[in-house]
Computed example of a mutant assay.
Amino acid sequence: MTGRIDYQIEKYLFSEAAKHPRLIQQWKDVIAECQENKAGAAERLRIALLNVDYVTSFELPFRLLLTRAPQLIDSVRDELQLSQKNVLFNGKRFGCVYSLKMDLGGIPDEFQYHLTTRIRRIDATGLTEATYREIAQQTKAPRERLRLSLEAGLEVNPLDGLFWFGLQRIAADVQRLRKTGMAIATSEVEVFDTLTGTTRRIPAYRLKA
């Protein structure tokens, strides 16, 4: 694919059922600072860790559009001396809480998240978000959505996977599909989104011809 993919974020609401006012304000401040500085991925993570009481592995990709959150966490772990706690998300997915605080006793053991979006996808080929939404409506399983999209001849990058398929670690899901026999090629694509205000190159996946 040539040219740039633009993601115009018209509505983007990622929320946690408990709705803690302090955390809500902290995240608003973090997003504002990231947008003002046009912060890259590593800097967005660092700003969040320094300014939010705690962050979870589930929310980081969605709130900060991080496509390699586990690797980024590892890269700052020694510098920021992170504490960590295992928790449960949406009643079925295990993950972690990260914080600069030593005492994590007051942090919940379970979190319930919800994401509401309205996003326009614009690229040089004329492919829009409608195709990805249609595939997402066929199944609720994120990896199955990825499989169907690849079999339909689509190219899928981490932002496509995050916004429409619920994929937080698309590279791991691609690897699992490869183990089933799917021949998936990797390339790079330039993307821009209005949530972070940044342009960068990220991986893109499609079935080999």
Score class of each variant (00 low, 15 high):
Gln71Tyr: 05
Ala18Gly: 10
Trp164Arg: 03
Ser99Asn: 12
Leu72Glu: 12
Arg178Ser: 07
Pro203Lys: 09
Thr196His: 02
Glu155Gln: 13
Phe89Ser: 09
Phe58Thr: 07
Glu134Thr: 11
Leu88Thr: 12
Lys38Gln: 14
Lys38Trp: 00
Leu88Trp: 07
Tyr7Glu: 04
Asp53Met: 10
Ala136Cys: 10
Arg77Leu: 08
Tyr98Lys: 07
Leu65Ile: 09
Leu104Met: 14
Met102Thr: 15
Val30Gly: 03
Asp74Val: 12
Ile107Cys: 04
Phe165Val: 06
Leu150Ala: 09
Ala42Asn: 04
Leu127Ser: 08
Val30His: 04
Gln138His: 09
Gln168Trp: 07
Thr56Trp: 05
Arg143Ser: 14
Ala183Ile: 04
Met182Cys: 00
Phe14Lys: 04
Gly126Met: 06
Met102Gly: 12
Glu190Ala: 10
Tyr132Met: 08
Ala17Tyr: 02
Pro158Leu: 08
Gln81Lys: 15
Leu100Ile: 13
Asp109Leu: 09
Arg44Val: 01
Ser15Gln: 11
Tyr113Ala: 10
Val156Arg: 05
Gln112Ala: 09
Ile170Met: 15
Ala18Gln: 14
Gln8Cys: 01
Leu49Lys: 03
Ala32Arg: 14
Leu207Ile: 12
Val156Asp: 02
Glu36Pro: 00
Ser149Pro: 07
Thr116Ala: 12
Leu159Ile: 11
Thr56Ser: 13
Ala17Asn: 03
Pro21Phe: 07
